[in-house]
Computed example of a mutant assay.
Amino acid sequence: MSTATPGDGVIRQLKVLPWEDLKAFESFYKEHFVKMVIFCEGITGDKDLAGQLVQEAFCKIWENRHSLQHVTTPSAYLCQTVRNTALDYIRRYRRELHDQTFSDVESERGELPLSEQLTPLVKRAAAKLPTKCRQIFEMSYLEGLSKEDIATYLDISPLTVKKQRVIALRKIREELLPLMDKLLLLVWLLK
């Protein structure tokens, strides 16, 4: 009588992924939908929007089901998909809101406010940053995401986000410092 250990070639029972057939996917959907709406509402702050975004996440999973054979924990994958869908929506919404505000200001005044005139200079300086540092800077200061949202989206710690933002600001400040004297003089002359 011998007992088999996990390393002795014991046949493991393989789980069927919930998106391998429609019935399994429907069951997976019914089991997780309400929990995912509650989770997503915590990100968006809007229950109706959360429901729509969860629907969208399930649709993405179903549409890409053939490329998801590597997924080992479907519920964790669903949670990540819902979170990314919500964060993508928030980013798009903020960008659209910013674009709308920008066009409203432009049409009202006929000229750009000083902060908008400086934005291209800041973007040019940010383009010289290392890729990850630049991405964090843009998400934080140009898109307005919080450090927690950025950390969640990039799957890094909030402390890393904080450190990268400090590095980005220091490097951009160093890049723009020679221009600051000229800019201050120009602002003073325009008064």
Rank of each mutant, 00 (worst) to 15 (best):
P18K: 11
L49M: 13
R173N: 07
L49Q: 14
A125C: 10
Y93E: 15
V166C: 04
G45S: 06
I136R: 07
A125K: 05
I136Y: 09
L14D: 06
S140G: 14
Q164F: 00
V54G: 05
E96C: 09
K35N: 06
K182M: 07
E26N: 10
L185S: 11
L189V: 08
I90M: 11
L68Q: 04
L145N: 12
I156F: 02
L97M: 14
L17I: 05
R170T: 06
F102Q: 12
W19D: 07
A151F: 04
I136C: 08
H98R: 15
L78S: 08
F33Y: 15
H70E: 10
V122E: 01
T131W: 03
A126S: 12
R83Q: 10
P178S: 01
G9K: 00
I61L: 06
L145V: 07
A24M: 12
G51D: 08
W62V: 02
S115M: 13
A57V: 11
R83D: 00
R134A: 13
E174R: 00
A126G: 11
R92D: 15
S146L: 04
E41C: 10
R134T: 09
E143R: 09
E143S: 11
V122R: 04
K128C: 04
I11G: 05
Q164R: 00
H32Y: 14
A125W: 04
I167W: 02
E143G: 01
F39M: 13
K15H: 01
C59Y: 04
E108T: 15
T85K: 12
S103T: 15
V105Q: 12
L185W: 05
Q69N: 07
L78Y: 06
H66G: 02
D99Q: 15
L97C: 08
L177K: 09
P18W: 12
I38F: 07
A57M: 07
A4P: 02
E20K: 07
T119D: 08
V166H: 08
K35E: 07
V166G: 02
I11Q: 10
V122N: 01
T3E: 05
L17R: 15
A125V: 08
T5H: 02
Y89R: 10
D8M: 04
L145C: 13
K30N: 06
L49Y: 04
Y141G: 03
L112Q: 13
L183Y: 09
F102D: 14
G144L: 03
Y93K: 15
N64Y: 02
A126D: 10
D155P: 00
F33T: 03
K15Q: 09
V71R: 09
Q55P: 00
K182T: 12
C133A: 04
L22Q: 10
I38K: 14
F137R: 02
G42R: 13
F25R: 06
F39N: 07
M139T: 03
E111C: 03
S75V: 15
K182P: 00
E108Y: 12
L189H: 11
V10K: 06
A86E: 01
F102S: 14
